[in-house]
């Protein structure tokens, strides 16, 4: 493990200044990935900048127009314990409550889970399905991108030098809509997704799908959105037949690798199965909320 200095800036300005001081920096949020990666020599730095003392990164709120804004360093447990978040954003709870065990969730953050850019990260497909965007700060101001544009490859994100992920913005759910995240792991907890699917559906009064988003994890170099699966759903009734078609589209979009966690055919097959199950879950949520 490298030797490094530790900085705990109290404001975003301080953090950005530290980030620009010419040293090789890494950002610390919950630390459940980065500390282990430093220990195992998989990442290196001269200075570690702790983002947990910047109030705006630790905060979350639901705005008046129903947008959920989550500071990048807010621990997952605080999010899923919040009754309003549980009620309005259950798909976020789906993913936040299964990343590691409870002791991990006390520390781990959405910002960290996203920036770590694992193709199998649980929060990514869920947030992509929810249409989340991320706000990125630098000394030049802020920019906002869809969450799916954050991923460059396994372990690589698209943040530029000097940038900090500030917060995640999840739009207010449309009326008559529902979202769901579902993954497959060999054990029942404490495991990395072999494949995963996050979906969101909106229906009209007659039960026809008016909007849909389908995202997959662990079946490509990054989490992917599957527009073909969404197209297979929009304009169709929310039933087994349309879900099966979306599942097939998801399987077709998957380009997985073979590794110790799963095989190519297995992952492709799971992309279909999980997408169908996630769609059923989303539909149930719509029905329950009526």
């Amino acid at each position: 493990m490298d030797s490094f200095t530790y900085l705990a800036p109290r404001s975003l300005g301080e953090a950005l200044t530290a980030l620009g001081n010419g040293k090789q920096s890494l950002l610390l949020a919950g630390g459940t990935d980065i500390i282990v990666q430093l220990r195992e020599g998989r990442r290196h730095c001269d200075q570690l900048i702790d983002l947990k003392h910047i109030p705006e990164l630790m905060a979350y709120r639901i705005t008046d127009d129903g947008v959920l804004e989550i500071g990048a360093s807010a621990p997952l447990a605080r999010l899923y314990e919040d009754p309003e978040i549980r009620r309005r954003f259950p798909a976020l709870v789906d993913c936040a409550s299964i990343i590691g065990g409870i002791a991990i969730q006390s520390r781990a953050t959405l910002g960290g889970n996203l920036c770590n850019a694992s193709p199998a990260a649980d929060s990514s497909p869920a947030l992509m399905a929810l249409g989340a965007r991320v706000v990125i700060a630098s000394s030049n101001g802020t920019r906002e991108i869809p969450v799916e544009e954050l991923f460059a490859g396994p372990g690589r994100n698209t943040l530029q030098p000097g940038e900090i992920l500030l917060r995640v913005r999840i739009p207010a759910p449309a009326p008559n809509s529902g979202a769901f995240y579902h993954r497959f792991i060999p054990r029942n907890e404490m495991d990395i997704a072999v494949a995963s699917s996050g979906v969101a559906l909106a229906l009209d009064d007659s039960g026809v799908i008016t909007a849909a988003r389908v995202a997959l994890g662990a079946v490509a170099a990054t989490p992917i959105l599957v527009p073909a699966a969404a197209s297979a759903l929009v304009g169709k009734p929310a039933n087994a037949e349309s879900f099966a078609a979306a599942g097939e589209a998801a399987a077709a979009a998957a380009s997985p690798i073979e590794d110790m966690r799963g095989g190519i055919a297995q992952r492709r097959h799971l992309a279909k199965v999980l997408t169908v199950r996630a769609l059923e879950g989303a539909l149930n949520r719509i029905r329950e909320s009526r």
């Binding site: 060999p186 054990r187 029942n188 907890e189 495991d191 110790m260």
Partner: peptide, 27 residues
């Protein structure tokens, strides 16, 4: 679930509790 999973060069690629997958209380 448990096994030593090797790559062709003879590297055990799941040498952590995460990927070795011993049963948890939930299993």
């Amino acid at each position: 679930n448990e096994e030593y999973y090797y790559d062709e060069a003879g590297r055990m690629v799941n040498s952590s509790y995460l990927d070795y997958r011993m049963p948890t209380a939930l299993d």
